[in-house]
């Protein structure tokens, strides 16, 4: 009982802090921005929660969406962002067949070597190659992008996530919320807006209230309506691009997600049944024994 009282007391005091934060969110963007800059805590706005096909215990990737996301990555993002850890061969998981993967890989030039003469040479990509990087090295990437190297895409969907705060992070255990990365990416890509009046944005940066590091970031808005044409007739909008590329990045970061959740379901079913059997066994063993 005292335990209960103590935990309620703590919960109440902590909820107080959370309450302050949520009340503040009702102010306008300018006040929020000023508040964030003053306290040095970003992002100004929490990412919006989106519906993802891969969320929840039975989540599965939407292959058509991943294919669209790949197209967005290839035609837009890959100009600056590498994706070093992903091999072309794994694109088969997006629903492409052997020949399609081969053809896709062959569109890229890959450096190989040294050859018999001791020289490096360029050849067409093969499925066992990884996505080649747009820049020779991190320093070159930084130099070409105003001093900040664009992050690698391979794990970005797991390497980004905004703190959920109390008590949301407790509820997340039961709702299995693991989509902080894609939510963040989608919000960031669709969140570019003009800086509120009176807010100074540093030269060469772009205001975005969803950016986790500051009030503005070096990357200019990368997507615009109509930039990529989808073969399956999905809308050519920034929102759609952002959604698809975020899903694709989640796949790139966690390619075995479906297998994991499928295996998990079998494990849970087994453990529940096994727990029931052990419970009955225990009851039977203790049947004639007071304890």
């Amino acid at each position: 009982m005292k335990k209960l009282v103590a935990s309620i007391a703590i919960a109440a005091s902590l909820a107080g802090f959370a309450g302050v934060a949520s009340a503040a969110e009702e102010h306008d963007l300018k006040a929020l921005t000023e508040h964030a800059i003053e306290g040095g805590h970003f992002p100004i706005l929490k990412p919006k929660n989106e519906d993802w096909s891969f969320a929840g215990p039975f989540g599965k990737y939407d292959k058509a969406q991943l294919q669209r996301g790949l197209k967005v990555y290839k035609e837009v993002c890959s100009a600056c962002h590498s994706m070093k850890l992903v091999a072309f061969r794994s694109l088969e998981e997006l629903g492409y067949n052997d020949a399609q993967v081969k053809a896709f890989a062959a569109q890229y030039d890959v450096q190989d070597g040294p050859n018999g003469d001791g020289e490096m040479y360029t050849r067409k990509g093969v499925p066992s190659d990884h996505f080649p990087s747009p820049f020779a090295n991190e320093e070159a990437a930084a130099a070409a992008n105003g001093g900040a190297a664009p992050p690698d895409f391979s794990l970005l969907a797991k390497a980004r996530g905004v703190e959920r705060g109390f008590p949301t992070f407790i509820f997340d255990i039961f709702t299995q919320y693991q989509e902080g990365g894609p939510d963040y990416i989608h919000s960031l890509l669709t969140g570019y807006t003009n800086a509120p009046e009176g807010i100074q944005v540093a030269e060469g940066t772009h205001f975005n209230p969803y950016f986790a590091g500051a009030s503005a970031l070096k990357m200019p808005p990368p997507l615009s309506d109509g930039q990529v044409t989808f073969d399956d007739g999905a809308p050519a909008t920034v929102d759609q691009y952002a959604r698809d590329v975020a899903a694709f990045m989640m796949w790139a970061a966690e390619p075995h997600l479906e297998e994991r959740k499928r295996t998990g379901f079998m494990v849970m079913v087994f453990l529940v049944i096994f727990a029931g059997l052990v419970y009955l066994t225990k009851k039977s063993i203790y049947a004639n024994k007071e304890h």
Partner: peptide
């Protein structure tokens, strides 16, 4: 392990 393997880790 199966449903929220990165919950206890840090991005």
């Amino acid at each position: 392990v199966f449903y929220m393997p990165n919950y206890l880790g840090h991005p």
